[in-house]
Amino acid sequence: MKVVGVSRWLAAYLPGGRTAWRPPQQVLSVTRHRCPWTLRAYRMLLNKGTLGGERVLSRASVELMTMDHLTPGQKVEKDAFGDHFGRHGGFGFGMAVRTHRRDLASPGQFGWDGGLGTTAYADPAKDLVGILLTQSAMDSVHTPRLHRDFWTTAYQAIA
């Protein structure tokens, strides 16, 4: 598992397109209790169901959860909504699954973008877990930009 330190400061996107830089403790104080558990869950999925040497889920369960289950017809319907239902291509059990390369993420990446501004994905090909927990709803034009910047920075940092 690679741990990537991006910056000592985090960007806070404000209404009107303004950006404010804040120390991480100010940005992350609300979410500091949830993030370690989310990270552990994604590490377990990257490790095919084991965490700390203990089997949590069967390997077959993880493979089923992280593979695309959409039919071609369902993908056509999903894609009719543009990027609203994700740029990733498909859905597993409870998560998005990347089926093609459209940006820096590898096919096989899995995770979820939450409606209240969270994004959490694991990329098995890069051994990468990224988690961004915000309280900036997806109804703002700034939140998708924040997600793109976060993922671009994470992938550039490991390149």
Score class of each variant (00 low, 15 high):
74 Q>W: 00
149 D>G: 06
125 A>I: 11
101 R>E: 07
130 G>Y: 01
136 S>Q: 10
101 R>W: 12
155 Y>K: 12
21 W>V: 00
24 P>C: 01
119 T>A: 14
115 G>T: 03
62 V>Y: 03
75 K>H: 11
130 G>R: 01
4 V>E: 14
82 G>C: 12
49 G>C: 02
29 S>F: 14
157 A>K: 07
67 M>E: 10
140 S>C: 07
17 G>S: 04
84 H>M: 11
121 Y>G: 14
41 A>K: 02
48 K>V: 06
139 D>S: 07
137 A>K: 05
89 G>F: 15
25 Q>T: 04
65 M>D: 00
24 P>S: 04
53 G>Q: 03
72 P>I: 15
11 A>S: 12
117 G>Q: 08
125 A>V: 13
61 S>Q: 11
141 V>L: 13
23 P>N: 05
40 R>N: 13
151 W>F: 02
99 T>F: 09
34 R>F: 13
54 E>P: 00
21 W>C: 00
34 R>S: 02
127 D>W: 08
4 V>L: 08
99 T>D: 05
117 G>N: 07
118 T>P: 05
151 W>I: 00
14 L>Q: 08
48 K>Q: 15
49 G>N: 02
33 H>E: 14
132 L>I: 05
153 T>H: 05
63 E>C: 06
130 G>H: 01
123 D>M: 02
17 G>K: 05
72 P>T: 11
14 L>K: 09
42 Y>H: 05
7 S>K: 00
143 T>A: 04
154 A>R: 02
61 S>L: 06
75 K>Q: 13
100 H>N: 03
75 K>D: 14
147 H>D: 05
51 L>Q: 01
134 T>F: 10
11 A>C: 14
110 F>L: 01
71 T>Y: 06
63 E>F: 10
65 M>Y: 06
77 E>F: 13
67 M>L: 06
4 V>A: 03
103 D>N: 15
56 V>A: 03
108 G>W: 11
85 F>R: 08
151 W>Y: 08
84 H>Q: 11
34 R>D: 11
109 Q>T: 14
146 L>D: 15
150 F>W: 09
111 G>R: 00
94 G>F: 13
149 D>C: 08
100 H>K: 10
80 A>N: 12
10 L>Q: 14
127 D>I: 02
1 M>K: 08
25 Q>S: 05
31 T>F: 04
68 D>M: 04
72 P>C: 13
41 A>C: 04
50 T>P: 04
40 R>L: 07
121 Y>S: 12
114 G>Y: 03
99 T>W: 13
98 R>K: 14
38 T>I: 14
34 R>T: 09
5 G>K: 06
27 V>Y: 02
105 A>H: 02
118 T>D: 09
19 T>G: 05
95 M>F: 04
133 L>N: 12
14 L>P: 01
26 Q>A: 13
145 R>N: 12
39 L>G: 10
37 W>L: 15
97 V>C: 04
125 A>E: 14
129 V>R: 01
106 S>L: 06
88 H>P: 01
32 R>H: 07
71 T>E: 03
29 S>T: 06
106 S>K: 00
102 R>Q: 09
52 G>A: 03
42 Y>L: 15
117 G>A: 07
83 D>Y: 15
33 H>S: 11
